[in-house]
Amino acid sequence: MGSSAKKKKEKKKDFQKAKLRVGKGKLKAANATDTSFKAKSIALKQQSLTANAPTVEALCAHHLALLNHKSDTQRRDSLAYLTTAITSNPPGIPLPQPSSVILPAVQRLILDGSSKVREQLLKLFQSLPKGDIASHTDQLLLHTRAGMTHLAGEIRVFALDVLEWLLGAAADEVVSCSGGWVKMLRCFLGLLGWQTEVSGKWSTPQSFVLPGKAGGDAKVQVKQMHALALFLRAGLVPSQSLAPVDGSGCTFPLWQTQHHLVSQRSNAYAHLNLFGAPRDEEAEMYEDREDRQRVFHDRAEPAIVVGLEQATKGGGEMGRAAAQLKKILKEGMMDYRGEDFAII
C-alpha cells in the first residue's frame, strides 16, 4: 500500500492546473486537434457566380420539393409561397409552374396531419385555374376518398371541403371518372352511417359511425349531407349547359354532330380501359346520366331514403339539410322512375 513519493507525484500530475501567464497565449487543451493544413491553391467547387436572384420558376420548383419536408410550418410556408406566386401571376401569362406539375405534388397533402397545412392547401387549390383541374380529377378524387375514409375526424371533414371545391371546378369529370360514382356513394354512406348491408336478422346496434369530434356531430353531419347533395346534383340532375349546345349545333344536313366527333375531354377513350387493370362494377366509369341513375337506384337509393327519413325526423338544421337533399334526389330521379315504369 505504501506508495512512494514518486508515485504520488505522478498521480497528482493529472489534476494539476496549468497556470495562465500574461503575454502568453492561452494553453491548448490536451485533446485539441490540429486542423491546420497547407495547400498550394484553394478551389471552391460549388461557388455560385450568378449575380441575380433565382427566378420565380426555380423558386416554385424548390418549394414544390419542400412539400415533403418534415416540419409542418415549412410545408405550410411552401404552400403559401406557391399560392401567392399563382395569384400574383398576371392573367394571360402561363403559371410559373404548370398545374400538371403542381397538382400531383400537392394532392398528397390532403391527408396531411396538420390542420394549418390543410387549410393552406385548400387556398392553393382555389387559386388554381379551374380549366386545369379536369384532367387530374381521378387522382384528386382518389386522395379525397382516402381523406373521407380517414380515421382522423378532422381530415374527414377537410376532405369534404376539397370535394366541394372539386365539384365546383369539374363536376362532370368527378361523377364520370373511374370509380367516381359508385365508390363515392359508398364512401358517403359509410360516412353518414347509412350502411345498406344488414347482416342477419339481428338488430345491429347504432353503429359508432365516424363522426368528427364528439359534440360537433350534428354540424358535421349537416356538412356531409350538404356535400352529398352537391355530389348528387352533379351526378343526377341534368346539367343546363348541355342543352344549348344541343340546339345550336345544327349544321343542316348533319344532326347531332357532336355525338359523332371525338369527345373534347382529355383522354377520350379512358372508358375503354385499354391499358389498366380490369375494372369491376365499382371501379367502372359511368359517363351517362342514365347509367348513373340506374346504379344509384340499385345500390344506394334505399339506404339514402331510409337515412333521410331519420334525419328529417331529427329536425333542426339537420332536418333542413335532409329536406334539401330529398328535393335534389326527387329532381334527379324523377325521369328515371318514369322510364322504369315505362319499361315494365
Binding site: 386522395h143 382516402a146 375514409t149 359508398r186 364512401c187 352511417g193 346496434p205 353503429s207 365516424l210
Partner: peptide, 23 residues
C-alpha cells in the same frame, strides 16, 4: 360484430390507399 362498420370503413380506407399506391 359491434365494430363491423368501423372495420368496413378502415377497409375502404385501405382500398383507396391501395389504389393510390398502385398508381
Amino acid at each position: 360484430a359491434s365494430y363491423r362498420d368501423d372495420f368496413q370503413n378502415q377497409y375502404n380506407q385501405y382500398e383507396t390507399f391501395r389504389e393510390l399506391f398502385l398508381q
